[in-house]
Design a protein around this nucleic acid. Structure first.
Lengths: 140, 140
DNA sequence: ATACGTGCAAAGTTTTTGCATCCCA
DNA sequence: TGGGATGCAAAAACTTTGCACGTAT
């Protein structure tokens, strides 16, 4: 029922490893959700479900909660109202076109160790950055 | 019914002005929503509604859509699943404690003109940054 | 055996839509 | 007065919960 093919990326393997390390079972349904997340960025619940045939929507929600609660995945709001999910390991940020809604990514984080001084009383774990504007196509 | 008191901040006035400039009517309900937004940051729909007695929830949703669609307000996801709204003019970023959920802000944006080179084909309009970690109280 | 996980169905929330009424430019 | 705006009720969409059955250790 759940054919698990080979050739996953790093994110998939490390995420599965961490799930086990945390004491959770790596069930076929969970593997399917993680594989779905590993195979594309910023996916909505719909898109994740479409990549997990045979897995109930309730299990998908519970797995996403589990992953987000463990810090292995994160939920994003990219402006269209739908929550989107990504594996946490994959650090990058988003460019969102306000005209056509296209989402692209960029890898080189402009923050690095540049986080605010005011945050001195705050132990930074991770951050999230989204840049909005107009993509090449929409600028015309 | 809608008592509009004086003494608003800049955000309130400029937002109302822009609403009019865009050709929309500045109705009492819209003013109430804008006033609510101007009086606190990152508020949920519930909180906004509580500050707008007498305004129907449908109107609140429609006004938030109008404001976000016009770029006068923005929706945020600060990790707790509830959408939150803020006036766009007020540029700042958030620190979110992963333990207690407390949200604080910081004003000095570490990005400024530091936005990515890859974005050269992208006309930046604004950005959003959220920093997650542990607040002073939760670090112990 | 036992505790964890899944799925169905139902309940709960949140958000959107249809439509009649209201009201300001 | 005429089109924009509001509000109610209903519908739709989204998410969570209860519970019985499965399934790995």
């Amino acid at each position: 029922m759940f054919s698990i093919r080979g050739g996953f990326g790093l994110s998939f393997r490390t995420t599965v490893g961490k799930i086990r390390g945390l004491g959770y079972r790596a069930t076929p349904q969970r593997l399917a959700v993680i594989e779905a997340l590993a195979s594309g960025r910023h996916q909505s619940v719909d898109e994740i479900q479409a990549r997990c045939p045979g897995v109930g929507i309730v299990t998908i929600y519970r797995t996403l909660d589990l992953l987000c609660g463990s810090g292995l995945a994160r939920r994003l709001d990219l402006g269209d109202g739908k929550p989107r999910y990504e594996l946490a390991e994959d650090h990058h940020h988003h460019l969102i076109c306000q005209s056509c809604g296209a989402i692209s990514e960029f890898e080189d984080c402009p923050l690095e160790e540049r986080l605010p001084r005011e945050a001195s009383d705050f132990e930074v774990s991770f951050h999230r950055l989204e840049v909005y504007g107009l993509c090449g196509g929409c600028r015309g």
